[in-house]
Computed example of a mutant assay.
Amino acid sequence: MTEQGKFAKGVVAQGFVAHSFVAHSFVAVGGGVLVLVALVCAITGALSPMANPSDFFASSLTLLPQAAANLVLALIGAVTTATGLVTARRGSAPAPLRVASIGGLLVLLGPGVLAAVGYLPFLLVSALAGDVAPLRNYLSPALVLQLVVVALVVTLLLSWIEQAVRADRGETSNRGLWWTWIAIAVPLVYTVSRVLMAIGIPDLSMENSSGAAGLGLGAAAAGGAVLTWGLIRPWGERFPRWMIGLAGKRVPVRMAVVPALCAAVLVLAGSRMLLSQMLADNPGIPNNVVVWLPIWLWPLWSFALVAAAMHYRLRRARAEVAIAR
Results as ranks from 00 to 15, higher is better:
residue 143 L to N: 07
residue 80 T to V: 01
residue 85 L to K: 03
residue 211 G to Q: 08
residue 279 L to V: 15
residue 11 V to Q: 13
residue 241 R to K: 14
residue 286 P to Y: 11
residue 189 V to L: 15
residue 87 T to F: 00
residue 138 Y to I: 06
residue 113 V to G: 04
residue 126 S to K: 09
residue 22 V to S: 13
residue 235 W to M: 08
residue 325 R to P: 00
residue 215 L to Y: 03
residue 317 A to Q: 03
residue 322 A to G: 03
residue 170 G to N: 05
residue 182 I to Y: 03
residue 137 N to P: 00
residue 17 V to S: 14
residue 306 V to L: 04
residue 220 A to M: 13
residue 234 P to T: 06
residue 85 L to N: 03
residue 134 P to W: 07
residue 291 V to Y: 06
residue 193 S to Q: 09
residue 256 A to T: 12
residue 95 A to V: 01
residue 123 L to N: 08
residue 129 A to S: 14
residue 251 V to C: 08
residue 129 A to E: 15
residue 244 I to N: 12
residue 139 L to Q: 13
residue 4 Q to F: 04
residue 42 A to D: 08
residue 115 A to L: 05
residue 300 L to W: 12
residue 147 L to H: 02
residue 89 R to L: 02
residue 128 L to K: 12
residue 283 P to G: 13
residue 226 V to M: 14
residue 296 W to D: 09
residue 112 G to T: 01
residue 109 L to I: 00
residue 14 Q to T: 11
residue 304 A to E: 07
residue 175 R to N: 11
residue 7 F to D: 12
residue 237 E to R: 10
residue 66 Q to N: 08
residue 149 V to Y: 01
residue 41 C to V: 05
residue 296 W to V: 13
residue 42 A to E: 08
residue 150 V to Y: 01
residue 30 G to W: 03
residue 64 L to C: 03
residue 34 L to S: 06
residue 193 S to L: 02
residue 95 A to S: 02
residue 228 T to L: 05
residue 267 V to T: 14
residue 76 I to V: 11
residue 229 W to E: 05
residue 318 R to C: 03
residue 325 R to H: 10
residue 295 I to F: 09
residue 17 V to H: 14
residue 128 L to Y: 09
residue 57 F to K: 04
residue 253 V to M: 15
residue 213 A to W: 08
residue 183 A to I: 02
residue 168 D to S: 01
residue 11 V to N: 10
residue 285 I to F: 12
residue 221 A to G: 05
residue 86 V to E: 07
residue 316 R to S: 11
residue 82 A to W: 01
residue 144 V to R: 05
residue 148 V to M: 08
residue 86 V to H: 07
residue 148 V to C: 05
residue 1 M to T: 12
residue 23 A to P: 03
residue 274 L to T: 13
residue 78 A to T: 11
residue 79 V to W: 01
residue 218 G to E: 07
residue 153 V to I: 04
residue 143 L to V: 06
residue 235 W to H: 11
residue 131 D to C: 07
residue 164 A to I: 00
residue 114 L to F: 07
residue 190 Y to G: 04
residue 53 P to R: 10
residue 259 P to F: 11
residue 307 A to L: 03
residue 94 P to D: 10
residue 239 F to Y: 15
residue 303 F to L: 15
residue 8 A to S: 11
residue 116 A to K: 03
residue 192 V to W: 05
residue 78 A to H: 03
residue 172 T to D: 12
residue 139 L to N: 13
residue 257 V to P: 01
residue 62 T to H: 04
residue 230 G to V: 00
residue 136 R to N: 06
residue 264 A to D: 09
residue 4 Q to D: 14
residue 27 V to K: 04
residue 97 L to N: 05
residue 232 I to G: 04
residue 262 C to V: 15
residue 191 T to F: 09
residue 213 A to L: 13
residue 188 L to E: 13
residue 219 A to Q: 06
residue 132 V to K: 15
residue 60 S to E: 04
residue 67 A to G: 02
residue 39 L to R: 11
residue 126 S to C: 02
